[in-house]
Deep mutational scan, measured.
Amino acid sequence: NQASVVANQLIPINTALTLVMMRSEVVTPVGIPADDIPRLVSMQVNRAVPLGTTLMPDMVKGYP
């Protein structure tokens, strides 16, 4: 099973992602692959992302 990117904390709308905000976890449904975490750094979320939420491609501005 492939690990996905999961919010490690509440991420407010328009926040630029940092490594501490994300963790990898095997979840269903599958979200953004954990391998993409380095690419996500400094990209902004377009909505508030609660703790434990799987990051989906449509939540991150400019992804992929």
Rank of each mutant, 00 (worst) to 15 (best):
M43H: 12
V26M: 07
Y63R: 05
Q2L: 14
T15D: 03
A34P: 05
P12K: 07
V20F: 13
V5N: 00
P12W: 06
I37M: 14
M43N: 04
T54H: 03
Q9L: 10
I11Q: 01
M21I: 03
P33Q: 07
V26W: 12
T53I: 11
D36C: 13
V60M: 06
G62L: 11
T15Q: 09
N8G: 10
R39N: 11
V20K: 14
T28P: 01
R23L: 04
K61M: 12
M22S: 00
Q44W: 14
N46F: 11
A3E: 13
V49C: 05
P50Q: 12
V20P: 06
S42G: 15
V6A: 03
E25K: 10
V49S: 01
P50I: 08
A48C: 14
Q2R: 05
A48Y: 08
T28K: 06
I32M: 03
L40W: 02
L55N: 00
V27L: 05
I32K: 01
V27Y: 02
V26G: 04
L55E: 01
I32V: 10
Q2W: 14
T54F: 03
R23Y: 04
L10P: 10
P57S: 14
L51H: 09
A7V: 10
R39K: 15
I13H: 09
S24V: 12
M21R: 01
A16C: 08
R39M: 11
L17H: 00
M21E: 00
S42E: 06
S4N: 00
G52C: 09
M22F: 15
V20L: 13
D36M: 13
D36S: 10
N1L: 15
L17F: 02
V5D: 01
N14H: 12
V6C: 04
T18H: 04
P50C: 15
N8D: 11
L19K: 06
Y63A: 04
V5M: 02
V27A: 07
I32G: 01
L40Y: 03
P33V: 10
L51Y: 14
R39I: 07
A7D: 02
V5S: 03
L19S: 05
G52A: 06
D58S: 13
I13R: 07
P12Q: 09
V27T: 09
P50E: 15
I37K: 06
L19E: 04
S42D: 11
R39V: 09
P64R: 12
D36P: 00
V41L: 15
P29N: 05
L17D: 00
K61E: 13
M59K: 01
G31R: 02
A16M: 12
T54A: 07
L17I: 09
R47F: 08
S4T: 04
T54V: 09
Q2M: 14
V49T: 04
T28M: 11
A34I: 08
A3H: 09
V30W: 13
E25R: 08
Q9C: 05
P38C: 08
V60S: 01
T18K: 07
M21T: 03
P64A: 14
V5E: 00
Y63Q: 05
D36I: 08
L19G: 04
T53C: 07
V41C: 14
P29E: 06
A16L: 10
P33C: 15
V27H: 03
Y63F: 09
P33N: 14
P38D: 10
I37D: 00
V30I: 12
V60E: 01
D35T: 12
M56I: 08
N46S: 14
L17W: 02
A3R: 06
L17G: 01
N8I: 06
L55I: 11
M22C: 03
S4L: 02
N46R: 11
P12N: 08
N1C: 14
N46I: 15
P38S: 11
R39G: 06
V60H: 00
D58A: 10
P33D: 11
S24F: 06
S24D: 08
A7W: 03
I32C: 04
A3Y: 15
T18S: 10
A34H: 08
R23V: 05
P57V: 10
A7E: 00
G31Q: 02
V26L: 14
V41Q: 07
P29F: 04
M21G: 03
I32H: 01
R39S: 09
L17M: 08
T54E: 01
V45D: 00
V26S: 12
N14Y: 14
G62D: 11
P50T: 11
P12I: 04
V27E: 02
V5H: 00
M22A: 01
A7K: 02
V30K: 07
S4E: 01
A16G: 11
K61P: 09
S24M: 11
I32P: 00
T15V: 10
N8C: 08
P33Y: 08
D35C: 14
Q9K: 10
I13P: 15
G52Q: 03
M56F: 10
I37L: 12
L19Y: 12
L17K: 00
T18V: 07
M56C: 08
R47G: 04
A3M: 13
A34L: 03
G62K: 09
V49I: 11
N14I: 03
Q44R: 13
A34T: 08
M21C: 03
P50S: 11
M59Y: 08
P64Q: 15
T53A: 14
L40R: 01
Y63N: 05
A7F: 02
N14A: 08
V26R: 04
D35Q: 09
M21K: 03
M22G: 00
T18I: 04
V20Q: 10
I32Y: 02
I13L: 12
D36F: 12
L17Q: 00
L10E: 14
I13G: 09
L19P: 05
A3S: 09
L51Q: 14
D35L: 10
M43D: 03
V49G: 02
V30L: 13
V5A: 13
V6N: 00
V30N: 14
A16E: 05
Y63K: 04
R47K: 15
V26Q: 10
R23T: 05
N8V: 10
P12H: 10
E25L: 08
L51M: 14
R23D: 03
A34N: 06
Q44V: 13
K61L: 13
G62H: 15
A48E: 11
Y63E: 04
I11Y: 01
R47W: 06
V30P: 14
P38G: 12
I13V: 14
P50K: 14
I13A: 11
V27G: 03
V20W: 14
I13K: 09
A7L: 03
V26D: 15
R47Y: 09
L40N: 01
P64W: 05
V20R: 10
L55Q: 00
T15A: 07
M56A: 07
V20N: 11
S24G: 11
T18R: 10
I11H: 00
M43L: 12
T54W: 03
I11V: 12
R39A: 10
M56T: 13
R23F: 04
L51V: 09
S42T: 13
A3N: 15
V45N: 01
M22D: 01
M59H: 07
A48S: 10
L51K: 12
P29C: 05
N46M: 15
P64Y: 06
P57H: 15
P38L: 13
Q9N: 08
L40G: 00
V26Y: 13
M43P: 00
M56Y: 09
G31K: 00
A48Q: 14
R23M: 04
P50Y: 14
T28C: 15
N1K: 06
M21F: 05
G62C: 14
P64N: 15
A34Q: 06
V26C: 07
V6Y: 02
P33H: 09
V20M: 14
V49K: 01
M59D: 12
V5Q: 01
E25Y: 10
E25A: 12
A7R: 01
Q9H: 10
V30Q: 13
P50M: 12
M43K: 09
V27N: 03
D36W: 11
T18W: 03
T15Y: 10
P50V: 06
A48N: 10
I32N: 01
K61C: 11
V30E: 14
N1Y: 15
Q44G: 04
Q9T: 11
P57L: 05
T54I: 10
T18A: 07
N14D: 09
D35G: 12
I13N: 14
V45K: 00
P12S: 06
P50D: 09
L10T: 12
N1V: 15
G31N: 01
V5C: 07
A48P: 06
V41E: 05
V6M: 04
D58H: 11
L40M: 06
S4R: 02
A7C: 05
V60A: 01
P38W: 13
M43R: 08
P29Q: 04
L51G: 09
L55H: 01
Q9A: 12
M43S: 06
M59N: 04
T28F: 10
A7T: 12
Q2A: 14
V27D: 02
L10D: 13
P29W: 03
L55P: 01
Q44I: 11
R39Q: 09
M21W: 02
P29G: 03
R47A: 08
Q9D: 09
G31I: 01
T18Y: 03
V60Q: 01
P57G: 09
T53W: 14
